[in-house]
Design a protein around this nucleic acid. Sequence first.
DNA 1: ATTTGCATGTAAAATGTTACATGATTGC
DNA 2: GCAATCATGTAACATTTTACATGCAAAT
Lengths: 186, 186
Amino acid sequence: MNRTEFAILGLLGQGPKSGYDIKRLVEERLSHFWNESVGHIYPILRRLHERGWVEKRVTPSESRPPRHEYALTVAGRRELERWFTEPVAPVPPRNELLLRVFLGAMAPAGAVAAQVAAYRERRLSEMKRLESVAAELERAARADPEFVWWRMTLSAGIHAARSAVAWCDEVLPDLTKKPTENGEVA
Amino acid sequence: MNRTEFAILGLLGQGPKSGYDIKRLVEERLSHFWNESVGHIYPILRRLHERGWVEKRVTPSESRPPRHEYALTVAGRRELERWFTEPVAPVPPRNELLLRVFLGAMAPAGAVAAQVAAYRERRLSEMKRLESVAAELERAARADPEFVWWRMTLSAGIHAARSAVAWCDEVLPDLTKKPTENGEVA
DNA sequence: ATTTGCATGTAAAATGTTACATGATTGC
DNA sequence: GCAATCATGTAACATTTTACATGCAAAT
């Protein structure tokens, strides 16, 4: 069983949803640590249905396409709880920026520095964005039962972004001073 | 053009290699930020050859299978240099641990805490391992022209691992005290 | 004796992304 | 009038992993 299936099963655990609901929810709340592509959600929902982990209810509508809503079954919830105790599968890393850094000796002058600087920008703005989301959450959603969990994932994102920026600040001086000393292409 | 092609092109930029050489090099030096599966390397090498970016030299041997060695061509090196200036494609995140944390409200009691504790262990030992590799490198390879670049990638790994541990230490108290208050399944 | 390392590759499966197809509604 | 949002889904493609297939040499 794959990761997408569990992600969707988990989101349905919070209440019945349509494929489109799932897509939006992932974009709005989970985007700093998860993503789902639309073309993947619908086939997975069907598979979950075939296995009896979700049930489907179609609500017709005059003005729009009928709404296909999926809800967890008892078997689905059991499966979901099992997943929580299953060890997280390690993801083999693939970091394109670090690949460029590692191979930096053969890069055109300044290219790696520019990449790291751009990366720093991205991570810094990500950090600020997450901090403002967290502040807003703290203000508006303390009573929400999801609150504590959501805050933890935001904090994870902030920690990661902050440490990425710190690394950039550490290496950027070495990358910008006298590039040829590092053996780069002149 | 995909990421594996550039990774292999880049490693060949450091000198001619066989498929097996590439596999070993990735495992030994790049494993904290990159991976390649064997089944992928050989087809890619052939593709690079078809495009004229690498040239192939087969050295026969009595006792072993012939060694197929690949080396960058001029066109290959040009392509590689182009890649350095190309913006890094953002990777859509998929963090299974954070997915579990986000959905923590419906987890069996203590399950999320156990996952985070296990994750902390993994990241802490990763951090120690990278620190010792870095120390060894500092001692043995300062003269190596690759040294500065390699050190930067190690530092990135150390920063990331350290910050992950810090996050775990931040959230673990909340996860272990009075689990039912967080709305978990009892 | 058996495992590990050297060394090449192929084939099938899984996973996931992108583009396409359709069409109404709502807001600007 | 036009773009965005709502809403469903399919099909083709790309990417990557896993398993298979082979076989010698060296070390334990």
